[in-house]
């Protein structure tokens, strides 16, 4: 119970802090009381490497890079959803409980699945009357800007499946193992769009489904299959997670370094 009291107090403090910002924005569509602090990113031309697994001529290849203009602004949370905010959703019956560490009220919520994150988005939308949802992986990359890391391997189109496999193992093995302990909001700084903790030690759920694509001619999308039981997780490196997973630790047979933690931030509109 002391934990609950602490979290409730934290929510109160957070709301008071957010109010002046909401007031100053007047009717411009900025946060209402109860809404998180938001940032809007202006349209621009940007490059994005597709998510999913791609083959050409039956052999695995790097996903194609698509280049284009994002024509509409993107409005999303400046920071990750915190443990205190998520706990409020749990208390109000909108989200499944996911026990956090005692000290984590003002820190990003972790140990949440895609299902938990989606439930939170629905709850916040109901509560505020504004449409909140998880970003697509492309939107996340658009917002992450300079913090996106490329997951190409370069080992192209060989009939020897071990070449790409070994290349991926080398790449994944070379990653530093991150401190898994969740840090206070803002500990990983802000990016060029004022978004806190992009590609820190909390990976973010996106709404993008895993898909496998056969590229038969150039980079045109050939036949593909999609599995929405697995979603793209964005962060320091891109990962694919089954939607009910809360702890990304892989430990054994899966090679490389898994995401350190799973959390999320939401897009409005």
């Amino acid at each position: 119970m002391p934990l609950f009291v602490k979290i409730t107090m934290a929510i109160g403090a957070g709301m008071i802090a957010a109010l002046p910002f909401a007031m100053s924005c007047g009717t411009c569509g900025a946060p209402l009381p109860g809404e998180p602090e938001l940032a809007t990113i202006a349209p621009r031309v940007f490059e994005y490497r597709e998510a999913g697994e791609f083959t050409r001529g039956g052999h695995p290849v790097d996903a194609p890079v698509v280049s284009g203009a994002k024509k509409t602004p993107l409005t999303l949370m400046r920071r990750l959803v915190t443990a205190a905010e998520y706990e409020q959703c749990v208390q109000e019956g909108g989200c499944p409980a996911s026990p956090q560490d005692e000290t984590s009220g003002e820190q990003p919520v972790v140990k949440v699945s895609w299902r938990d994150a989606s439930a939170y988005a629905s709850w916040l939308s109901r509560k505020t009357g504004r449409a909140y949802r998880l970003p697509t992986n492309e939107e996340w990359a658009f917002a992450a800007g300079s913090r996106v890391s490329d997951d190409s391997l370069g080992a192209e189109n060989s009939a020897d499946p071990s070449k790409r496999w070994l290349a991926r193992y080398e790449k994944e093995s070379s990653r530093d193992i991150l401190d898994k302990n969740v840090k206070p909001t803002g500990a990983f700084g802000v990016n060029e769009y004022g978004l806190a903790d992009m590609a820190g030690n909390v990976w973010e759920w996106t709404d993008t489904c895993y898909r496998r694509v056969a590229l038969d001619v150039g980079t045109a999308i050939g036949r593909s299959t999609e599995n929405c039981g697995v979603r793209v997780v964005a962060g320091r490196h891109r990962s694919y997670m089954t939607d009910f997973i809360r702890d990304p630790r892989s430990g054994g047979c899966a090679v490389g370094v898994p995401p350190a933690n799973l959390g999320f931030r939401l897009v409005r509109g």
Binding site: A159, D160, P161, S162, L166, Y169, S250, G251, G252, C253, V255
Partner: peptide, 17 residues
């Protein structure tokens, strides 16, 4: 024990498929 508790090692083997 292998996946959840840690009893996993890897061999990295190079050569021709």
């Amino acid at each position: 024990e292998a996946v959840e508790l840690g009893a996993t090692a890897h061999f990295k083997v190079e050569g021709e498929w």
